[in-house]
Design a protein around this nucleic acid. Structure first.
Lengths: 220, 220
DNA sequence: AGTTTACATATTACATGTAACATGTCAAGG
DNA sequence: CCTTGACATGTTACATGTAATATGTAAACT
């Protein structure tokens, strides 16, 4: 019956992974940046073993890629990659939301509502990076609605990849606002326990994201 | 301009991974079996590093689980796990097939047909394990139809997990035959480029699998 | 007997050593 | 100028060392 002071995993490998993942998603480590194991082990003040493990984890989750004898780099996604990821996200998140319409607990919906409020606040303050963080949370929460951990995990993995892939296509505030309203429609349908409607609302959201991505392409 | 004699990855970690994955899927390493790194490194005649890497890969792909300080074991799935995996497989494979109805190349369909022939042969010979192998191939091929590598990878990962999860529920030959005919319906619809029909046929397949799994549960 | 303690064993988690390999630089040679 | 090739540097991939930790077993105590 020990007090168990350490609730965290405490493993250096996990800590290294958390640091690297966070830095990748924040853009501190941009796509293409080399993930040199000796270099990172010096920076993090640990040996190469846990760092190697962390890098492998990132590769397995699609946030980094490695080629033989050349080490890993932060993943960088082409437009085609981004569209392919979006195609799968659409399928998975729509499924999750449709299932969630009947399965979601009131707390699940409350959490969604909370995130939407944070999102509205970020919009008011034109807090671009803040919005992106809430967007990540929102779509991860959509994954939890299904109460299916397998689905939840995949939604999370793909949202992370998407975050990285869509970062260069820095969207305008106007589009962020459209995204926010589309999110609201999804929540509204969920609160009405309307699976069909929630699925359709989310489909619209993805359709618009895809179109704006293709639109951004021509400007570039 | 070297001849590049070595086309395989040649990495010991990859080879160890391939061996372990194969043994897990074949049931040589049954669910719950410990994956001791020192033990495996002795058996495979390599050092612990590549073995550790292989085990991590397996954990990342859901074929093994590890708990802190106790090492990894071959994943074992509850009935609930199996149903959750099936739920996501259904969503992904149906999506892949619907997309594939328009995107699939004739070669894709030819490969499917080939696998179905092998499947018929395995049935005739009552070759149980042979059938399982073709089943794995068939569903992996469904993933390729979409020509979306992200989707393809996820379909493959989940089919592997499913294979492991459903192994204890050794299905009867009669059910294998039903599966074969359901596969045929999917291919027929695909050859007619009928997305709707192919999706529905595959949905039926999954519905029946789920029901027979629940049926098996009560006998157990 | 039943619990506890101590010891032996095995494994993880992290650290470090090292050969093979890739890449960049820079000077020699065409 | 351009190419070539030796050298220096840095990295991966694999091997091995080791402290902390978990587990099994047997002796010691109640």
């Amino acid at each position: 019956m020990k007090p168990r002071a350490k609730l965290q995993s405490e493993r250096l490998a996990d800590k290294a992974y958390a640091v690297l993942r966070s830095q990748i998603l924040k853009g501190v480590l941009p796509p293409g940046h080399a993930l040199s194991v000796p270099e990172l082990s010096r920076q993090l003040g640990v040996s190469r073993s846990p760092v190697r493990e962390a890098v492998l984890q990132l590769v397995a989750e699609g946030l980094a890629r490695e080629q033989a004898h050349k080490g890993a780099v932060v993943a960088h996604f082409s437009l085609e990659d981004a569209l392919q990821i979006l195609e799968v996200r659409e399928v998975l998140e729509v499924a999750s939301v449709r299932l969630g319409a009947s399965r979601a607990a009131p707390e699940d919906l409350a959490r969604l509502k909370q995130v939407l409020q944070a999102q509205a606040k970020a919009l008011q303050e034109s807090d671009f990076v803040g919005y992106q963080a809430t967007d990540l949370q929102f779509h991860r929460l959509l994954g939890t609605l299904s109460h299916n951990p397998v689905l939840e995990r995949m939604v999370g993995l793909l949202k992370d990849q998407s975050h990285l892939a869509l970062e260069p296509a820095a969207r305008s505030l106007a589009q962020l606002e459209r995204g926010y309203h589309e999110h609201r429609s999804v929540l509204a349908a969920l609160e009405a326990r309307n699976a069909e409607g929630a699925g359709l609302a989310l489909l619209k959201h993805f359709k618009r994201i895809r179109e704006s991505l293709e639109g951004w392409l021509v400007t570039k």
